[in-house]
Design a protein around this nucleic acid. Structure first.
Lengths: 393, 393
DNA sequence: TTAGTTCGTAAGGTTTACTAACAAACATGC
DNA sequence: GCATGTTTGTTAGTAAACCTTACGAACTAA
């Protein structure tokens, strides 16, 4: 019992132990040295993936590991066919010239599938940089349940046949609620509930498969390829309305894997249209593309279509304001038909959010269309595979 | 170039490397074996902290580490004075009797300070279990800026003098926007902007200090001591309205460290009262305690106070619905004066949220008062110190 | 030609956690 | 009472991962 007034915890608990530094986290599983190895392995891949060609010495400098350790990791990765030496650095400077390394970007390919469209399943073969090399698609033709699953399998097998290099894995973006094991808990349009899509596909194709919600997949693409921030919300407008959230670089799944399901949140306090879900004034009744198109067509003679689009944008803004405020988001991205979203709707949304939140906290709030167009889910599928198989994104 | 149709990534990249398994994350820093050691060290502390007395063999079983490694870690922790042997297990069974270990819960104490009340700074000395051992407070008396800082220092020094064991560190919950380094970026009521409170206190008191936003601190307390879920929103109602978010067990800070600042989000689409911030119908105009009390007092003769409370609850529900929907929250906790919050207000809030969101996704949504009462920030301060210094929470 | 720089590798040491084996201390059954 | 079996915690030795130190190779610059 030392007397008070002394200067705190004297000799012993000097520094916070490694992982706990600064961060508030809860260690839950043991960590062995080999796990650290796996982490550093991914760190090397990640560095090369983003910065491109680098020498071993460059990698050592940018990762903080020693040249010796880097050499060892690089040798391991080269033996696996993931890295290649690409010749010597051209820049002339004193010292032994550096041997450049890069990920062997042609060594593997990735399959991506997008199940989020209403009438068609789309798929693609992508390279490790997320570029689309070839495409395939299969009409849904009203299939549900096992028939829909069969069409996914057929599409996947077609894509496998189109690949021209070993396949690293397959990513699938599905509508509905998907758990962390790739089980589609609920996707009404496809008639799935408890559909073990990831397990089925993985077994059938004998390759690593990742299945996730389409909007969650899309937000990964926007983060990796659309140079977005690490705090990001992507709102996907189509037949329904859904969102994907990336917070601090980590996707949010929610307590029941239904994070981002904002389509059936009621907007405003002044009524609205009856929704299929039973409530009145859900976000989807204002914003889903069929409704928007119908409203514009109906009003073609009387009202200005811009008025309808602006109203929809305001409703989206009303719904997003509490989310933007609570999460202190810096960036919100819209994905969907540009002819509807990109214009009065988007402008009205950002004006509404600015009017309804505290400007100081996110004066720089950016609301914009995705830069990835209609391939956002396909490219996000590649991100999932890269992340899961190589620890790269 | 192997022909398509083959079964994917053949020999080499068999398994996803350790840390990246399943999770989508981005390795950013190197990890050395000693970091793994730190993690396992915290794991042992964590296990003992939560489960109480255990033998080395018990720890080995529950952590997955071997008895040898556990013995080594325990020896290290005992040398630091964090663990003690507490005798032999009483239960009679075959084999050598187990020597029980526990965290030496009297070996260190923690200081906690709550700056969130309007007229007073409150502080306490707590034990490692977060129990309050003694208290002190200092009236704010309208102090702002450097005067307010001086009062925090004075209170901290008083608390240090009250401690009866070495001090592990100090936690401070401050109103306003606080960054990860404990700099109070903006706290209008206290006249602080860019106030380096954590650095100042740490230097002045020569002990580890953590400063964070009061609502973020409170949510940690609710998680650790109020047996809450790992997806949790805590709404703190007082002179203002703020929230703390815990998502997947991790606190959310936001892109500008202003996560949870929902007090100035406009609620509803039917006007409201003018707010000090310039907007009309901010959540605070409906819910802040001075406003609520005034409204009830003014209506004392004419209307039913319950009507006013129900209306406030509905407004809170309207504001929270999009957040609950977007984050798929399972649990929302209110903190503040129970005479106002716990009753018609709380009931109206949950009814409103249920009416405005999709029931299937969070049918079990729980909305309740905190179980920690007015000491929630003080106890949360202890959680921060435990987490930062020992990796325990 | 000499000096200095940079790159990549080799050799050896430290830390970490593992497996294997064992002594201590107990309950149980004959 | 004594052998048997169980559980605990430690000792000894091994493997993995990273480090430091040192060195040869290959280049520029003076």
């Amino acid at each position: 019992m030392q007397t008070a007034g002394s200067t705190a915890a004297p000799e012993s608990p000097t520094r916070p132990p490694g992982f706990a530094t600064g961060r508030v986290l809860r260690p839950s599983t043991k960590v062995l040295p080999e796990h650290a190895r796996g982490h550093n392995r991914s760190l090397v891949l990640q560095t090369l993936y983003r910065a491109g060609q680098q020498s071993r010495a460059d990698l050592a400098r940018s990762t903080g590991l020693t040249r010796v350790t880097i050499s060892d990791l690089v040798a391991e990765l080269m033996a696996e066919g993931l890295l290649v030496e690409t010749g010597q650095r051209a820049i002339i400077r004193p010292g032994k010239p550096a041997t450049l390394l890069d990920i062997d970007r042609g060594a593997f390919q990735i399959l991506g599938i997008d199940l989020s469209e209403h009438t068609i399943f789309r798929g693609a073969v992508l390279d490790l940089d997320g570029r689309i090399l070839s495409r395939s698609e299969i009409p849904l033709a009203g299939s549900t349940g096992a028939d829909a699953t069969a069409k996914v399998i057929a599409l996947a097998e077609t894509l496998r046949g189109m690949a021209t290099a070993p396949i690293l894995g397959m990513g699938v973006g599905s509508p509905g609620v998907v758990d962390l094991g790739g089980v589609v808990l609920a996707a009404p349009n496809l008639g799935w509930s408890g559909e073990e899509l990831q397990a089925t596909l993985s077994a059938r194709l004998s390759m690593p498969v990742v299945v996730a919600n389409d909007a969650n997949v899309a937000v990964l693409a926007e983060h990796s390829f659309g140079d977005a921030d690490s705090d990001l919300m992507l709102v996907k407008v189509g037949h329904g309305v859904g969102a994907g959230l990336l917070l601090g670089g980590t996707p949010l799944f929610g307590s029941r894997f239904a994070a981002g399901e904002i389509g059936h949140v009621v907007v405003g306090t002044d009524g609205g249209t009856q929704c299929a879900c039973g409530k009145v004034g859900c976000l989807e009744t204002w914003l889903a593309t069929p409704r928007l198109e119908a409203a514009i067509a109906a009003a073609a003679t009387s009202a200005d279509p811009d008025t309808i689009l602006r109203e929809a944008g305001q409703r989206l803004g009303i719904a997003l304001s509490p989310v933007v405020g609570a999460l202190n988001l810096a960036e919100v991205v819209l994905s969907g038909p540009a002819n509807l979203l990109d214009g009065p709707l988007l402008e009205a949304t950002i004006e509404t959010i600015r009017d309804r939140t505290m400007a100081e906290f996110h004066g720089n709030l950016v609301l914009r269309m995705t830069t990835l167009g209609e391939d956002i889910v396909l490219r996000g599928s590649a991100v999932m595979v890269l992340s899961g198989q190589l620890g790269v994104s």
